[in-house]
Amino acid sequence: MTDSQLRTMFEAFAGAPTPGLRPIRRRATSRTLVIVLALVAVCGALVPASRAIVHAFETPKQFVSDTTQPARARTLIENYLAQQGGFRRVLTGVELELTAHTPDGRVTLYGLRFAGGAIGAADVGLGRNHVSGLWFGPPDACPRGWAIQARASFVASPGHTPVYVEGRVADTVAALDVAESDGRTYPVAIGNGYFLAWITPGPHAAKPSATLIARAADGAQIGAVYVGQKGAIPPSVAGTQPGCG
């Protein structure tokens, strides 16, 4: 390769002394790239919000950055992500399932998906006294034919604050009631196959207990789970495994 060859090539391709004219048309510039990136960023912000509206699962990262979700919920998931690994399963999806108005204020329940097919839920209270919690386990913890699976329960101050019970309900369940030992009954919040029940402390506060009764659309009882003292869930009246009914 010699300089003279290059000079010859330059002379051959240098062209006319004035720039060629051509029809003006828009072409991509750096500014175009900036605009496109900005649009992508806006879409990225909107998509998680739209997913929350249509009850689609968000990835944990999307959920944590989704400003339409309550800060407490995002913090709960963020804390779980920071600790996952080891015995903690890898969280892969989060979805808003239901919102309930409890004695401790509004509580939202999020369905969770984990690597390996496990499921779970996180309940997040927006009131002052509610203690947020999270559970996970195999997708079907009960034998075939179950109507209700009570998967977790907790109480912040036994005898003083409500006992919360949550889990899954089958598609056949149209309504879920709490029947307390003193005869009081009230409905339970259900949505998207999940339920969140609370048993309020009453005159029987020393031994709060209740039965969760699952009903079909015609009102017939199709399952029941007994919730014992301090939220303990002993073997159910209908089956041999705790929390199945």
Binding site: F13, A14, G15, P19, L21
Partner: peptide
Amino acid sequence: LRPLVVRTVRLVVGAGSAIAEDAAQ
């Protein structure tokens, strides 16, 4: 100076491309 500028830009950007002509302008 126009021929020098136009041809320099054209050769560096790529002679024969419309983008080079725009750049020369």
